[in-house]
């Protein structure tokens, strides 16, 4: 498979076009807007957290296929995870998309591993990571908009 096909796998195109958990969350305990000024991608992440567990997580906004698919997959995977688990997955994911293929990480990350191909496209790493940084800031309750710049 070419690097480009690795990047734009069917699952990514699908989540990019039909993102899951797309919309606002009225009873969110945390929310945050993330912005990539380079390409204009703008995502808001909503989390409702109870007893240190992510009960529900949604997002809305617009962006490229990579950033929307990454956000969509993130919301699927993190549902029901504890804070500690979220942090561990964040670290694994960050390493995967910046450093590239790694069987151990890909095994741990499950379907998120579909984004491993991003590492071959340095200009696109920010797209894949936007939702994740935004989530991290939302859960830390930082004020303001997160920017990838």
């Amino acid at each position: 498979m070419s690097a480009l096909r690795q990047l734009y796998q069917e699952m990514i195109i699908d989540h990019g076009k039909r993102p899951r958990n797309f919309g606002t969350l009225p009873d969110a305990t945390h929310h945050k807007e993330g912005f990539n000024p380079l390409c204009g991608d703008r995502l808001t992440i909503y989390v409702s957290e109870k007893n240190n567990v992510v009960e529900k997580i949604c997002f809305e906004g617009s962006g490229c296929a990579i950033s929307v698919a990454s956000a969509s997959l993130m919301t699927e995977v993190l549902q029901g995870k504890t804070r500690a688990e979220v942090e561990a997955i964040f670290d694994d994911f960050h390493e995967l998309v910046t450093k590239g293929h790694n069987v151990v990480l890909e095994d741990r990350l499950g379907k998120l591993a579909v984004l491993a191909g991003v590492a071959e496209f340095p200009a696109r790493v920010k797209c894949a990571i936007l939702a994740w940084h935004t989530l991290k800031a939302a859960m830390a309750d930082d004020a303001g908009t997160v920017s990838t710049e």
Partner: peptide, 29 residues
């Protein structure tokens, strides 16, 4: 239905260099 950033990456894969983004003219966007 296709974001400019994705178009730029796919064109680049074919050796085509175009600019994608706001072109330092955000008010125009």
């Amino acid at each position: 239905g296709i974001h400019p950033h994705d178009i730029g990456t796919i064109l680049d894969d074919q050796g085509i260099a175009v600019r994608v983004g706001h072109h330092c003219a955000m008010p125009v966007m």
